[in-house]
Structures are given as structure tokens and as C-alpha cells.
Design a protein around this nucleic acid. Structure first.
Ligand code: MN
Ligand code: MN
Ligand code: ZN
Ligand code: ZN
Lengths: 132, 132
DNA sequence: ATTGTAGTTTATAATGATTCTAAAAAAGTG
DNA sequence: CACTTTTTTAGAATCATTATAAACTACAAT
């Protein structure tokens, strides 16, 4: 299994639950956005083994903490996560409630001129809301 | 009362609850960010009259719908609102859990190059997360 | 392999922000 | 005032998320 090392190197034991979730999230060239609920559905469909909802939450948060997932800042009833952890931005289609990636090249360079004493910038994220 | 007309013109009856919330939110030169809970606290302190939590929610959502408040897209346990409804951006201090305004002049012009068929841009918001 | 231990999973309960409900109160109209 | 519509309200319901604590598992040391 290709994810065993990745998990071990992160200090996470490669359990079968985590490996299954790795397969769903990372075993593809395309990155994507998802909610916990959507991930839960994929897990159910994929195999006859079910993973406890608590474990799905735990795993997603563990992966986020390790930098394998990003949480997308958006006001929605559910939290969105992103398997694309590179710096990039998003369209949010208000009607469809769907996120669409915006590469850095789709958005000019963003230069934050204001500085806050004793704080440093961790991330700069642009959210572009779309309507019909 | 200076807010009676404003409310009437919006098709909202100027009730004493709405007027009191108007005073708290708009009777100042400075704009600010708040959660429903923080607004609730201010209401309690301000007067001996209490407003039902449901009414606070109703009023804030009504004002948002009329364009007198903006919801700030951020992942927090509580929803943040902004009395500054002009186009502007935010720092989010992760430690303090506080929002700080970023004027458009503090952020260069943002040019979204990608277009989505049949959709138009409603807003462009930058969130800059700060850490120590 | 057997044991011991820390880490993980799980079902379930708890939490808490937000929304819903339906009855009472207030506002607007004439 | 009489009538209609809107609003307020307390409390219940919702629901995503987190906490709990017991069972299970990975894994290293014996
Ligand atoms: Mn989370
Ligand atoms: Mn809302
Ligand atoms: Zn993305
Ligand atoms: Zn602001």
C-alpha cells in the first residue's frame, strides 16, 4: 500500500480506515472539494466495510492537521475540505453550492500592504461568489 | 428616531427591538464585526429590556437581506457579521479569533481572469489568516 | 509469539449554534 | 375602534460537530 509510509512518516498509524480514506481522497490525479457527509457517502458506496462517522471526522481533522487537507473558509451549513493543499482560490456558486478552483494564475498576485504587529501571514485566500 | 425611515423604506416595520438593534449596530462612525452572541450581550448590557434571541436572529438576517449587514465567510463556530457593507477584505487573527478590516487600498486590485459560463461575479473577498 | 502500552475506532450521548413553531403582541390601515 | 398583517417570543427541534468511554488494534519490547 502506497499510503502506509505517508501515514507512518506523519506519526499516524496506518489503520485500514485511514488507508481507505486515503484511497478515496488521494488516489487520483484530480483534486476535489468535499464535505464530511459527501465523504461518508463515498465510503459507503466503495466497500461493504463501514467506517464510523466519528472516525471520518477524526481522520479528516488529523489529515488537515498534517497538511494533507485544507479547510475552505466559507459560510455553509457544512464544512468544506479540499484535497488541493497548494495556494489557490475559489469560486463559490451560490446556487449550486459548489466550489470551483481558481489557480493563482487566474487571480493576479495579491499583495497585502497592511502589516499587523507581531503577526505573520499564514494564508491568503480569495473567495469569489457567483450568481446567475 | 433616525432609523424609522430607513426601516420603513426597506419594508420593515420600525419596532422597538429593531430600533434598539439599529442603535447598537449603526449609531457609530466606526463599523465593526460581531457574532449573534456578542450582539446579544450588548443588548443585555444596554438596557433593562431584553430581546428574544429569535428576534435577534430574525433582525440580523432581515438586515443582511436588505444589505445593511454582510456575512463574513469564515470557518468559525459562530457566524460573523459586518456593519461595513462596502467592498473590503479581512485579516483573521487565528489566535484571538478576531477580524480586522483590510481596505481595498491595503490589497492590490484583484482581477479574476477565469470566467464561468452563465455566471456573474457577485463578490470578491480576500481572507488573510494571521498567526504569531 | 506473548505481553504491554499507547493509539485508534466505535456507538452513542452531548453540545451548541441556528432554525422552526405557533401563540401572543404590536403595527399599520381606514 | 375593528381588522389584517407583521413581528415578537419562549420553547422545541434540528443537525453538524465534538465528547465519552469502552472495545479494539498496531506495534514494540520482552
Ligand atoms: Mn473542524
Ligand atoms: Mn444565517
Ligand atoms: Zn480548491
Ligand atoms: Zn469588515
Amino acid at each position: 500500500m502506497k499510503y502506509i509510509e505517508k501515514l507512518r512518516n506523519s506519526g499516524l498509524r496506518p489503520t485500514k480506515q485511514r488507508l481507505q480514506i486515503c484511497e478515496i481522497l488521494f488516489n487520483t490525479d484530480k483534486t476535489f472539494h468535499f464535505t464530511i457527509n459527501e465523504l461518508e457517502q463515498k465510503i459507503k458506496k466503495q466497500a461493504n466495510n463501514k467506517i464510523s462517522l466519528a472516525t471520518v471526522y477524526n481522520t479528516v481533522h488529523a489529515f488537515e492537521k498534517k497538511g494533507y487537507l485544507k479547510q475552505i473558509p466559507i459560510n455553509s451549513s457544512e464544512t468544506y475540505f479540499d484535497t488541493n493543499v497548494t495556494d489557490h482560490h475559489h469560486f463559490y456558486d451560490l446556487k449550486e453550492e459548489k466550489l470551483i478552483d481558481l489557480d493563482n494564475s487566474d487571480v493576479g498576485p495579491i499583495n497585502i500592504l497592511k502589516k499587523i504587529n507581531g503577526k505573520k501571514i499564514k494564508s491568503v485566500e480569495v473567495l469569489v461568489k457567483l450568481e446567475d
